[in-house]
């Protein structure tokens, strides 16, 4: 499978373009690092690739077709702030169930204790919550993962643990992954190639 962003440009109303004419593509089984300075629109580009935002110009194609508007999106975004991607009023078990049946081996591998499932998000730390938002999208329906700075706020042990599970899953299921990060060492460690979002792309 192939996920492509073609000639992507984005601007908010009444502002300059955040970026213009970005071309980016990821194939199944490939891990692409996306590196950029802050304020260059990494998060916006991630959201566009996962269908959360519509680009001002250009389009995102999955195998030549537009992303589906309904049903499970094969391109899933994992966000930097886990506390924003989880409803604070929902128990953790229900959070996981939203994406489908719970894979107990997987949640164990990613470091989720079973008694956390009965807790509410406020009773868990950021690192613990991020394991849930990662585990939620690691299922057979996901074909591409966009990971937007998912380990920036985590300690290095949690970072290593989460990434090791993601990489194993991605390799096993032949999933395409875009890892947005500013950590050079991390990008070098996990990525097949690195895409730099730079000033030249801003028109």
């Amino acid at each position: 499978m192939l996920l492509e962003g073609k000639n992507l440009s984005f601007k908010y109303k009444n502002t300059d373009y955040l970026f213009e004419n970005i071309n980016i593509s990821v194939e199944s089984g490939e891990i692409v690092g996306l590196v950029a300075k802050s304020g260059y629109g990494k998060s916006t580009l991630s959201k566009i690739l996962a269908g959360y935002e519509t680009p001002t110009k250009g389009q995102v194609l999955l195998n030549g077709k537009k992303l589906p508007n309904k049903g499970y999106n094969p391109v899933q975004l994992i966000y930097q702030h886990p506390e924003k991607s989880i409803n604070p009023r929902m128990k953790m078990r229900d959070v996981l169930l939203e994406a489908g049946p719970i894979d107990y081996d997987l949640i164990k591998a990613i470091g989720i204790e079973e008694d956390w499932l009965t807790r509410y998000p406020l009773e868990l730390s950021g690192g613990e919550l991020q394991r849930f938002s990662v585990a939620r999208v690691l299922n057979e329906k996901t074909k591409f993962i966009i990971a937007d700075e998912i380990s920036t706020m985590l300690d290095v042990i949690t970072q290593a643990q989460i990434w090791n599970v993601i990489i194993e899953f991605v390799n096993k299921r032949n999933i395409g992954l875009v890892a947005v990060t500013h950590n050079k060492h991390l990008a070098e460690k996990i990525c097949n190639r690195i895409f730099y979002l730079e000033k030249e792309n801003r028109g």
Binding site: Y52, G71, Y72, N73, L77, H81, K84, S85, N87, E98
Partner: peptide, 13 residues
């Protein structure tokens, strides 16, 4: 506009 609501939609809800 909360992210978890948009995410729920992308999970097919």
């Amino acid at each position: 506009n909360e992210f978890y609501i948009k995410l729920s939609k992308k999970l097919g809800k």
